[in-house]
Amino acid sequence: MNDSARVTVVGEALVDLLWRTGEREVRAVPGGSPANVAVGLHRLDRPVTLVTAWGDDVPGALVSGHLADAGLTVTRAKTTPPGRTIVALAYLDRDGGARYDFLADWDPLDLPVPEDTAVLHTGSLAVVIEPGASRVLELCREQRRLGRTVVADLNVRPAVQPDRDAYLATARSLAGAVDVLKSSDEDLAWLLPGLSAPDAARELLAEGPPLVVVTLGAEGALAVTAEGGVRVGAPDVAVADTVGAGDSFQSALLDAIAGHGGPPTGQEELAATLARCAAAAALTCTRVGADPPTRTELAAWHTS
């Protein structure tokens, strides 16, 4: 197990405006899937660098302060002036689920990757919003050619690209540029309606990634490879909300990939990895907002 292998996360940091059903006040919370993943990796004591961008505006000041308080190593990419921080309006239902609308701007001009990077991660808005998305896709291809493990989380957001066919084309291109592709069953149901989660995962597996991982919410997670598939359940918890659960799952997955020197292989290793990831997601669901566990918390909770 290599505890010093670095993960570089490329993607958006933004401000979520959380609006709960029945409430009149909206709460501003810094986040963004890639930023949340980086925070989760940091809490798991994994060396991590976040390459992101934000504007010199009120939301940007909140993002900047949040990343500094989190203790992250951050590279702020240059952008075309004036630059605007992404803002997401998250509508939270009474069961803790969320729907999103976005005021989006993603135009990083440079995406520098530290030389000691072992694993590159990206996904979410960063692979959909142009002109930055094309640069991120090329970065994935370049880093894979250099021998680094490349991982992506689709984290589908139809609010930023409502054209299903265009979004699916993006997903297929991304799948062909990475070693591990992660998605949720809800993502796949929107992208590939009519297919079960395992069948949709195999559809994306055919694009070239050796491993596709799918989260199933309260039902756990599954993984498919050319050799077959693995499925694990999820711990039963009292849900505060689901914000950041998928990102915590992804942090744990990246931590395992970096630690093992590549994607897990073999059914036992895959199952053990997925079970730990599902535990990280479940623990996050017991808390309000994107609040991923530390390595100590996850170890104690996962083995209890």
Rank of each mutant, 00 (worst) to 15 (best):
G244I: 01
A171H: 13
V156H: 13
D185E: 10
D199E: 14
R164F: 01
E219I: 00
D199Y: 02
L216N: 09
A159W: 15
L154Q: 05
T242S: 09
S251F: 00
A201F: 08
V243E: 04
V239G: 11
V237L: 01
P158K: 12
A240F: 00
A218M: 06
L191S: 04
V230A: 13
G208T: 09
L211P: 01
A226I: 12
A240W: 00
T215I: 04
T225R: 13
A169Q: 13
F249T: 10
E207L: 12
K182R: 05
T170C: 11
A223E: 02
A206P: 07
A223H: 01
E203G: 04
G244Y: 05
L168E: 10
L154V: 14
D255H: 15
L195Y: 06
V156S: 00
R172A: 10
D255C: 06
P209R: 13
L253R: 00
L216S: 05
V213L: 13
D241P: 06
A177S: 14
P210T: 10
V239T: 13
L205N: 03
Y167W: 12
L195H: 09
R202C: 07
A169M: 03
R172D: 07
A206L: 04
G220Q: 05
E186G: 12
A226K: 08
S184N: 08
S184K: 02
V243Y: 02
L204E: 09
S173H: 07
R172F: 07
A252D: 05
Y167K: 06
D247A: 00
A223P: 02
L204W: 11
A171F: 11
P158D: 12
V214H: 01
A245M: 08
D241C: 10
R164Q: 11
E203W: 02
S173N: 09
T225K: 11
T242I: 03
P162A: 14
L154R: 08
S173C: 12
D165W: 12
E207F: 05
A171L: 14
L211C: 04
L174V: 15
D255P: 01
V230M: 10
V156E: 06
T215Q: 04
P210M: 07
L216V: 04
A221M: 06
G229F: 04
R231S: 14
D185Q: 03
A221E: 03
E203P: 08
A159L: 14
V213P: 10
A197Q: 05
A206D: 14
A169S: 07
S196L: 12
K182M: 05
V239R: 13
E227Q: 15
A159T: 14
V178P: 00
L191G: 11
A206E: 14
V212W: 15
R157Y: 06
V224E: 00
V232R: 06
A245V: 12
A206S: 13
